[in-house]
């Protein structure tokens, strides 16, 4: 599987992502600078976390106009797979590849902690190889992670099974207390209608090795990995 990891000025999880994809999952990884116009023929474009362009104006608002994003747009329109984490999720929402927006956390705090998320379905290749209702321990690190969408958009997301992950407690219950940032319906990650674009606030690449606390992140990343291994 070929993964291209995008790098913007202010990205800070790019090397974690490169490490997890290449050293843990043994994907062929190409880092791609935001001014490049060559995505390097990937199976998957991975947009990492960080603070692209200092989060100025709104998180992800400037990055979406970076030259490489025109290629990502075309790649996605042609059915390519795109995976955005944290700031990557914010960028995907800003550019309209995913519906909704990420607002300031309800409690106004920057949250850097391990949380539990629940796999909601196996409808997309991003979750197909995971157990539905499986609880994963994945870290979050964000100030703007409160998922918001208008009522109609939210209904559509729910009806079409586009919610991939929800914040939950250790037993998998969807409680308010387990919702760290006030996201609607405890949403931690969604896909587009075509199920080829995934955005999520938690950082699977940070929990890819037992030495770093958990391998649940690697388990999560391995789903899409297996999709491409099978195809190839």
């Amino acid at each position: 599987m070929r993964v291209s990891v995008l790098i913007f000025p202010g990205s800070n999880c790019d090397m974690d992502a490169v490490h997890a994809w290449s050293r843990v999952l043994h994907a062929k990884v190409t880092p791609v600078w935001h001014k490049d116009h060559d995505l390097a023929n990937p199976d998957l474009v991975f947009i990492p976390g960080g603070f692209s362009f200092g989060d100025y104006l709104r998180s992800g608002a400037i990055a979406r106009f970076s030259p490489v994003m025109q290629d990502v747009q075309r790649f996605a329109e042609k059915g390519g797979y795109v995976f955005g984490v944290c700031n990557g999720f914010q960028i995907l929402c800003e550019m309209g590849l995913l519906p909704g927006a990420l607002l300031t956390n309800k409690n106004l705090r920057f949250l850097c902690e391990d949380v539990h998320i629940r796999v909601e379905n196996d409808l997309s290749p991003f979750t197909a190889k995971l157990e539905t209702k499986q609880v994963l321990n994945i870290p979050i690190a964000h100030g703007m992670g409160q998922y918001f969408a208008d009522d109609e958009t939210l209904r559509k997301l729910e009806d079409q099974g586009q919610v991939a992950f929800r914040y939950c407690d250790a037993a998998g219950a969807l409680t308010d207390a387990a919702n760290p940032n006030g996201s609607l319906n405890n949403i931690a990650g969604i896909t587009d209608a075509g199920r080829r674009v995934l955005g999520m606030m938690p950082h699977p690449e940070r929990h890819a090795e037992a030495e770093l606390g958990s391998i649940d992140g690697a388990v999560l990343l391995s789903s899409i990995m297996q999709h491409f291994t099978k195809v190839a």
Binding site: T104, K106, L108, Q146
Partner: peptide, 10 residues
């Protein structure tokens, strides 16, 4: 309107 503004609330 309808979008939560935690900063305003604070």
């Amino acid at each position: 309107s309808g979008v939560l503004d935690p900063q305003g609330k604070t």
